[in-house]
Amino acid sequence: MKIVVTGGAGFLGSRLIAALLADGAGRIVSLDRVACPLDDPRVTSVIGSIDDADTVAQALGEGADVVYHLAAVLSGQSEEDFDTGLHINVDATRLILEQCRRLPRPPRFVFTSSLAVFGGQMPEVVPETMATLPQSSYGCGKAIGELLVSEYSRKGFVDGLTVRLPTICVRPGAPNSAASSFVSGIIREPVAGLPSDCPVPVDTRLWISSPGTAIANLLRAARLDSAAIGLHRVLDLPGITVTPAQMLDALERLAGAPARARVTLTRDPRVEAIVCSWPGAFDVARADALGFAADADFDAVLRQYLDEVAAA
């Protein structure tokens, strides 16, 4: 089996590749601007941009069984640089789909979307039938990508499934350009003994998933039978609803009061305008029925991160 992962050198992509290798994957191609950090003979790195047709053709080669499309320009950068965000998140997504269309056999195409496709007036719990109304350039690009994947699936060019990821927390490493970067930052930095800012009201509802659960659900997405997916090729993945206040309470319980004291509440209107337009809870009955998983609570999410830190 050949699997292609765009963004394979990134945080989520490299973890997905590691999980695929542990699951017995035969051959994996990482398509990213830098080489995949995993050293395994089954992993080939194709270095380049997803908006370059020759690079995409090289990665897909003569065919692929599964394509995971994770690469994107994130929310903060998309809002600041409209043209680049639209070009990578929309034009490059279609370029990849077009290359898949040319393959001898349609691959399973797993596209990672976002809760940022929603906005405006929303109920407490967003139903599966909720219309998208993005209030950010990033959300707009992802919503267009969802439609493209559904249309290319309808035409039989790919066997597609869009999965809307919750905000992933806790991400290790340095902050990124996502507007939601603080969700990890208010945990990661204090645990490391560093100060951090919370730029949104502490009662803001956030829909989150741990990295481990997100990766397990991405593996599941590739294995689903097409008949089980049905006509609706977009799925809201399970998450848990938590506020920054609840996260900081957990931080104090599990990492101590000094860690909690390192977080300063500093409102940022730019971040607030984006993040507070996102929904805080979803009806995920369909995903539950299809075997996707959710974290038990935020304490479990935080323990997962603290265990990683201790093992590093």
Rank of each mutant, 00 (worst) to 15 (best):
V275W: 09
D307R: 02
R233Y: 11
R303A: 11
A257I: 13
L306V: 11
T264L: 15
A216C: 04
T266I: 13
P269Q: 11
R267A: 13
D268S: 04
S209P: 01
G239W: 00
L224P: 14
L302Y: 03
Q304L: 11
D288L: 03
Q246K: 11
S209N: 13
Q246A: 13
L306I: 04
P279N: 02
D299C: 01
R253C: 06
E308T: 07
F282P: 06
D297T: 03
Q246F: 03
L235M: 15
L219P: 09
V301H: 07
D307A: 15
R267F: 09
A228F: 05
C276I: 03
E308D: 15
T213F: 00
S210Q: 11
A287T: 07
A294H: 13
A281L: 10
L218Y: 14
D268L: 12
T243K: 13
V301F: 05
C276P: 08
A245I: 00
R303N: 06
A245Y: 06
R270H: 09
A285S: 12
P211M: 08
L224G: 05
L254Q: 11
A250K: 02
A293I: 15
G256V: 07
A222Q: 12
D268C: 06
D299W: 00
Q246L: 06
R262A: 14
A227W: 15
T243I: 14
I229W: 03
A255T: 07
D236G: 14
A293Q: 14
L265P: 00
L219D: 11
I229Q: 02
A289K: 06
L237V: 11
A294L: 02
L224C: 04
A221K: 09
A261I: 01
G230M: 09
A257L: 15
V271W: 04
I240A: 10
P279W: 09
V242G: 06
G280N: 10
V275E: 13
P258S: 09
R260I: 05
E252S: 10
L219A: 14
L290Q: 09
R270G: 05
G212K: 07
V301G: 06
M247D: 00
G291A: 07
T264N: 15
P269A: 11
E252Q: 11
R262Q: 09
Q304H: 12
A222G: 15
A293G: 03
